[in-house]
């Protein structure tokens, strides 16, 4: 087994009714790389993500993580073996404080979850870790605010903070900048970049904003109608005629025709 491969899918298929949402995707992601998946709406990116994080089971095909078959492993177990994911639609604990949101995620991968006879405040390490993470994602001044009161951009940062708190080896980021104000995006991308550089993490990113991913990605996979259309470095992808036709063409075709 090649040690440099962190996660690998083989002929992954997911069929919803008659729709082949993911149609035979085989992909390998190497450790400590940032691998971006792009593709038009409905290309199957989020379904593919759900298969990686275990939210749904594939119709056929397999997922290997660190050389081990994890196809049937439930999501809560995947968190413990180092796979964490964030969500496109903000998915936090709305009535808990920002700190508690992150503290819980840190506690989740520890070994104190069933200590029901002890006060949770005794376990300082989780709170300290949460404070450090909030510093990192730029929420240190809002630790006591209920998460629901954060502005949208703040919730996106919190989403990332929750993910980082469990210290995963593999981060699955589903459009982390979705709906964020334009001026907040560079800060979040900077966090993602720093996480990758300092924490020796592997990141799989789904993103719509081409300009963002071109700069940060090591590799890009293009999905189209459930299939893997192309894969390569950002430069290769930008130069690929099939990609231009299927993806960039789909997006900008109408505009070009209009001229």
């Amino acid at each position: 087994m090649d040690d440099s491969i962190l996660i690998e899918t083989r002929e992954l298929v997911k069929i919803f009714g008659g729709l082949r949402a993911v149609d035979g995707v085989s992909m390998t992601v190497r450790t400590q790389t940032l691998h971006t998946i792009i593709g038009p709406n409905g290309a199957g990116k989020t379904t593919f993500f759900n298969l990686l994080s275990g939210n749904i089971r594939p119709t056929s095909g397999k997922v290997f993580y660190k050389g081990r078959d994890i196809t049937g492993v439930p999501p809560y177990r995947r968190a413990h073996i180092g796979i964490g994911r964030s969500f496109q639609i903000t998915n936090v604990f709305p009535n808990l404080s920002v700190l508690e949101n992150v503290r819980l995620a840190a506690q989740a991968v520890g070994h104190d979850n069933y200590k029901f006879w002890a006060d949770h405040r005794r376990f300082h390490k989780y709170e300290e870790r949460a404070q450090a993470i909030l510093q990192q994602v730029g929420l240190a001044s809002q630790t006591n605010l209920p998460a629901r009161l954060l502005p949208h951009g703040g919730k996106r940062k919190l989403e990332l903070g929750i993910l980082l708190a469990s210290d995963p080896d593999l981060l699955l980021l589903d459009e982390p900048t979705a709906g964020m104000a334009r001026e907040e995006i560079p800060m979040l991308m900077e966090v993602i970049r720093s996480v990758r550089e300092t924490g020796k993490k592997t990141i799989i990113l789904v993103e719509h904003k081409m300009d963002l991913v071109m700069n940060v990605s090591d590799r890009i996979s293009v999905m189209h109608q459930g299939q893997l259309l192309a894969e390569g470095t950002p430069l290769e992808i930008a130069a690929n005629p099939t990609v231009q036709k299927a993806y960039l063409g789909d997006l900008y075709g109408d505009l070009t025709e209009g001229k």
Partner: peptide
Amino acid sequence: DSPTGKVMVATRENEHRATMIGFN
């Protein structure tokens, strides 16, 4: 007030996310 109780509250708040961060 225990770590276990905090997970119960997390389950109440957002069971799906609680599962995703590693709680059964």
